Amino acid sequence: MTRTRFLAAGLLLAAVVPLAACGGGGDPLAPASSPAAGGAGGSTAAAGSVKVGSADFPEAALLGEIYAQALEAKGMTVTRQFNIGSRETYLKAITGGEVDVLPEYTGSLLNFYDKNAKVVQPDEVYAALQKAVPQGLTVLDKSAAEDKNSLAVTKDTANQWSLKAIPDLAAHQADLTIGAPPEFKTRQQGLVGLKSVYNITPKEFRPLQSQATVEALKNGQVKAANIFSTDPSIAANGFVVLEDPQSLFGSDNVVPLVRSDKADGVKSILNAVSAKLDTTSLADMVKQVVVDKKDASAVAKTWLASAGLA
């Protein structure tokens, strides 16, 4: 979801804090603070403290919980600040020092900092991102896990309009309604890129969040929807993800974004997480949280144990 990681409320409320609007007024973090309880084995932290944040969709909060528990397992004190908002909001939080660590996505973050970036291959995107992040921030090792933005349609729409790839939508612009998170309207990995890359301008854009986007697609209220590639609703509903021949959405590997003054203290721990995290594992964990309604902290704990990280 851009990664707008879409990716991103009804079905999702049970396991993760409700999605927040991407407002920018005041201190977005004040009500969300939740100090962690002790480190591994119930010991209090002796290795320092860190504030872990996340964007306002379930996968991001899940990844934040994975990072938090991995750090706690090594004796750090962690404060959780999850579901802060969209990228436009939570990047202000990390640059301002309200949080120290965020799970991010390589391609989407690169596009945020460099709207003219043309690289699309994972290693090229990561290398460019390392140069693009502003002073005071750094990215640690990227993981193999990838969750990309995508445009999805129902099977009926795909058959009716003969759709296989995003460019096929151009012939149906007069009837095209797209549902996506609000920020999709102004992002390159959104309506701006659809116009500049594919010369597609929908008849209507409907700003929606997460499950509301899925429901709107299922019910025919929108003809296409921005849904993250790991979202279990794609398989559950038989949605057709349109091919992206010009790589508008590019590669999007999960990567920790960290304040530089905290990097030395968390680097080895979070790099170990990235070394173990892959797309299959991530998609399975998201399903457990979103579909199976399991608690995100329990899902994170189980995965970390299986990976030998807790």
Rank of each mutant, 00 (worst) to 15 (best):
D175S: 11
A145D: 08
M1C: 08
D175K: 11
A158L: 02
I166M: 01
L151G: 07
A174Y: 12
P28W: 10
S49A: 14
K218T: 11
A152K: 07
M285S: 04
T4P: 15
V78G: 12
G250Q: 12
A224H: 02
G97L: 05
Q246D: 12
T201G: 04
K203H: 07
L242R: 06
A300N: 04
G220D: 10
G39I: 01
K131T: 07
G24P: 01
E104R: 09
P134E: 00
K287W: 15
G179Y: 11
H172F: 11
G179E: 06
S297K: 06
G107T: 07
D231E: 07
L176D: 01
G220I: 08
T177G: 13
L248A: 05
G250T: 13
W303G: 01
D123W: 15
D244H: 10
T213P: 08
P207M: 03
N271L: 05
R87M: 15
D231N: 15
K118E: 09
D284C: 03
F239A: 00
A165L: 02
A263W: 00
D100I: 05
F184V: 09
R87A: 14
F6A: 10
T280R: 15
N116R: 10
K164R: 00
T138Y: 11
V120N: 09
K118A: 08
S143Y: 02
L110A: 06
T89Q: 13
A152F: 09
K155M: 09
A47F: 07
V241T: 14
P232N: 07
F249P: 04
E183N: 13
P182C: 03
S54M: 02
D252C: 08
G238Y: 03
L7G: 07
Y126S: 11
E215K: 15
Y90N: 06
Y105Q: 05
A14W: 08
G96E: 05
Q135S: 15
D261F: 09
V273N: 05
R259L: 10
S33R: 15
Q211I: 09
K223N: 03
K294F: 09
A21D: 15
G238P: 05
R259E: 02
N253H: 08
